[in-house]
Design a protein around this nucleic acid. Structure first.
Lengths: 250, 250
DNA sequence: CGGCATATTGAAAGGGTTCAAGGGGGGTGG
DNA sequence: CCACCCCCCTTGAACCCTTTCAATATGCCG
């Protein structure tokens, strides 16, 4: 996004940071980021990475696959409130808030890298400009939840679903995973139901409607958008809330 | 909350900060907070303080009354996603994100104090520990939105309404505005509808049900909780997400 | 070629909406 | 001090989006 292309830009960490920062990273800053000691871990589908109530001493970044933030009702009903793609650091908040108010789990298979809080704190002390970038990343995550809130509160199932697909295609596009507005989409229908606040059965019918409207194809975990403008219109989608430098990266 | 009682603790700013900080403020820190140059402004009910798309050069704190964060659909439907009470600083995010993705308006009459970003930045540079407090305040705001999201997505109107009342009573309790679990509640029914993602008519019927269950009284903008345990149970309310030091301050 | 998870569809029920009309309550002016 | 009026609240009835329950189909993997 910003700056010139070094080969290290392939690193999701750096890619994400550069897409958010309001300045170009110095070589030192980039090197320090890449030097963070990571404990890479592979998760299977539908495993929790961290859980509500945890008091983590580390946070993690997604390298491959998709994770989701969710909360559950005492009655066991689940609400997904964000998806996390390569480069995202979903629980930076644990740096400042001791106990987690959310759980983060995988959707499909997922590779993540854990970093000790101490290492992050040392990095931020050494490179204060990165602190601002983390702020921005966190605030953008919060903005996304707010847009989801508007979505669940004030749009019908059809528009909600369309909105989710729009966001996904855009965000995966940022990290190069949605060429031609088509992407891998590991979520099964009950999973989408939890994200949209509707039932699995209704997810099915809504997807059918979107297909019949000629907006998308969805088969074998692959989403293809046929009519981007139509999908955006159905969703009333405006990417402003994503705070992107390039609002249409696919 | 934390620390001993100085007379300055009456200042909502300080009160809120102390309820969030993990340490006791030094006299210098407290003095610096109180020395922030404020431009006090009185708003009437249903006015916007800031609007989506704005690029503010200042942020503001609520001193009296209640404000709310909301977004609107292109079709004009409104979703309220947070209420702000005395001591809250709803738009600190504008320090880091140039353009606002939300609007913040008043509910009843409301007195707020504006502070220039530069003044805040200078304060944080001089007292780095306060930076951590602001982080925590912001993250707690985000946690509240997530709980609201669970609420809207996965609970029925009855539980949602109960949950909102629980949160209000607790949060107003923190700043001393809900003795005996009773408080002023300036929101009219259509306003509550926008916060819960339902229609005004249904708000009315839901309030009636809560009254008939003997949980609350609500008349002339005054909410009285008769059966706190019952209300919490109806809402499945767990105050953990508020990250309070005292989880039951009313 | 099973077998199990996921997707699909039908029919009936329900929570919430919509439209429409009637009933307070409190502030203002006479 | 009372009357009037403007909001706001309250209630009824029909409708609709979404849920629920239940059954069938499809696809993938060993």
């Amino acid at each position: 996004m910003t700056g010139t292309l070094h080969q290290n830009d392939k690193h999701p960490f750096v890619r994400k940071i550069e897409s958010i920062a309001l300045f170009t990273l110095t070589d030192d800053e980039r090197a320090a980021l890449l030097a963070l000691p990571l404990q890479m871990t592979q998760f299977e589908a539908y495993q929790d990475i961290v859980r509500e109530g945890d008091r983590p001493a580390r946070c993690f970044a997604v390298f491959e696959g998709i994770a989701c933030t969710y909360k559950t009702t005492l009655g066991g009903k689940r609400q997904v409130m964000a998806y996390h793609v390569a480069g995202d650091i979903p629980d930076i908040q644990s740096l400042h808030l001791k106990v987690l108010d959310i759980s983060i789990g995988t959707v499909g298979p997922c590779r993540v890298g854990f970093v000790q809080h101490d290492a992050v704190r040392a990095l931020l002390r050494a490179f204060p400009r990165l602190d601002d970038v983390l702020w921005r990343a966190t605030l953008i995550d919060a903005a996304m939840v707010r847009e989801w809130m508007l979505n669940t509160g004030r749009r019908d199932a059809y528009a909600r679903m369309a909105h989710l697909f729009c966001e996904l295609v855009i965000r995966l596009g940022v990290v190069g995973l949605a060429p031609d507005r088509s992407c891998e989409m590991p979520m099964i229908q009950p999973e989408l139901a939890d994200a949209l606040g509707i039932t699995p059965v209704h997810v099915n019918r809504t997807i059918r409607d979107l297909k019949e409207a000629g907006l998308i194809t969805l088969r074998s975990r692959r989403l293809i958008v046929h009519d981007w403008e139509g999908l955006k219109a159905a969703a009333e989608f405006d990417p402003a809330y994503l705070h992107l430098t390039d609002p249409d990266p696919a």
